[in-house]
Measured scan of single mutants.
Amino acid sequence: MTEYKLVVVGAGGVGKSALTIQLIQNHFVDEYDPTIEDSYRKQVVIDGETCLLDILDTAGQEEYSAMRDQYMRTGEGFLCVFAINNTKSFEDIHHYREQIKRVKDSEDVPMVLVGNKCDLPSRTVDTKQAQDLARSYGIPFIETSAKTRQGVDDAFYTLVREIRKHKEKMSKDGKKKKKKSKTKCVIM
C-alpha cells in the first residue's frame, strides 16, 4: 500500500485542523484551538488504489514558523489553505509557496490551493482571484467548507493525484537520464 505524506499549511484560523478532522473523523470542530502540530493517518481508496494518507496539520501562528522547514522537508505534497473571508490569509499563500519551493529546492512541488469556509456569506476573496492565482502557479484550486464537508475529500484526493503525477514524471525523467548515460565512448 502506497503511503502519501501530505502537509496542510496556511495562516492561523483558516480551518486547516477543521478540514483535516472532517476528512479523518467526519465531524466539524467549530471551536478554535490553535494547533502546534498534529499528525493523522487514514486509509482510503483513490482511483481504485488503496493508500495510506499521513497528514500533518501544522501551526499557522507566526511564533511556530521555525518548525516549518522541518515538516516541509518531509512532506510530499501540500494543501495551501486560505479562508475566503480573510484576504490576508490569501496573500500569505505566496509566502508559504515560496518557502516550500526553497526548502524542497524545487520549482515543481505537488500543491493544491484550497479556499476554505465557502459556506460563509462574508467572502472577501473572489473565486476568480483564487483561480487566477492557482493557474499562475500551475496547481489545482478547490473551494471547501469544513463545516458542510463540501470539497473536503476532493481537496485531499486531488493532492494525492498531483503527487502521483509528480512521481510518474520524475521516474520518466530518471529513465531518460539513465538511457543517456548508457551511451559509451570508444577510443581507438
Score class of each variant (00 low, 15 high):
residue 2 T to G: 13
residue 2 T to Q: 15
residue 2 T to W: 07
residue 3 E to T: 09
residue 3 E to S: 09
residue 3 E to F: 07
residue 4 Y to V: 12
residue 5 K to Y: 02
residue 5 K to G: 11
residue 5 K to N: 15
residue 5 K to P: 14
residue 6 L to E: 00
residue 6 L to P: 04
residue 7 V to P: 02
residue 7 V to G: 09
residue 7 V to Q: 03
residue 8 V to R: 01
residue 8 V to H: 00
residue 9 V to A: 10
residue 9 V to Y: 09
residue 10 G to T: 00
residue 10 G to I: 00
residue 10 G to K: 00
residue 11 A to C: 14
residue 13 G to Y: 09
residue 13 G to K: 11
residue 14 V to Q: 14
residue 14 V to L: 13
residue 14 V to T: 13
residue 14 V to I: 14
residue 14 V to W: 02
residue 15 G to T: 00
residue 15 G to W: 00
residue 15 G to R: 01
residue 15 G to H: 00
residue 15 G to S: 00
residue 16 K to H: 01
residue 16 K to P: 00
residue 17 S to E: 00
residue 18 A to W: 01
residue 20 T to N: 15
residue 20 T to S: 14
residue 21 I to T: 15
residue 21 I to R: 15
residue 22 Q to L: 03
residue 24 I to L: 13
residue 24 I to Q: 15
residue 26 N to S: 13
residue 27 H to V: 10
residue 27 H to L: 13
residue 29 V to E: 11
residue 29 V to P: 08
residue 29 V to G: 07
residue 29 V to A: 11
residue 30 D to H: 11
residue 30 D to Y: 09
residue 31 E to P: 04
residue 32 Y to M: 03
residue 33 D to H: 14
residue 35 T to R: 01
residue 35 T to A: 05
residue 38 D to L: 02
residue 38 D to N: 07
residue 38 D to G: 02
residue 39 S to Y: 04
residue 40 Y to N: 02
residue 40 Y to G: 06
residue 41 R to V: 08
residue 41 R to Q: 09
residue 41 R to D: 06
residue 44 V to G: 10
residue 45 V to D: 07
residue 45 V to F: 05
residue 46 I to Y: 09
residue 46 I to P: 04
residue 47 D to K: 06
residue 47 D to E: 08
residue 48 G to A: 10
residue 48 G to I: 07
residue 49 E to K: 12
residue 49 E to W: 06
residue 49 E to V: 10
residue 50 T to Q: 04
residue 50 T to E: 04
residue 50 T to I: 07
residue 51 C to G: 11
residue 51 C to L: 06
residue 52 L to P: 05
residue 53 L to C: 11
residue 54 D to W: 02
residue 54 D to A: 01
residue 54 D to N: 07
residue 54 D to I: 03
residue 55 I to W: 02
residue 55 I to C: 13
residue 55 I to Y: 02
residue 56 L to W: 14
residue 56 L to T: 05
residue 56 L to Y: 06
residue 58 T to P: 06
residue 58 T to M: 10
residue 59 A to R: 01
residue 59 A to G: 15
residue 59 A to Q: 15
residue 61 Q to N: 07
residue 61 Q to D: 15
residue 61 Q to C: 15
residue 63 E to N: 07
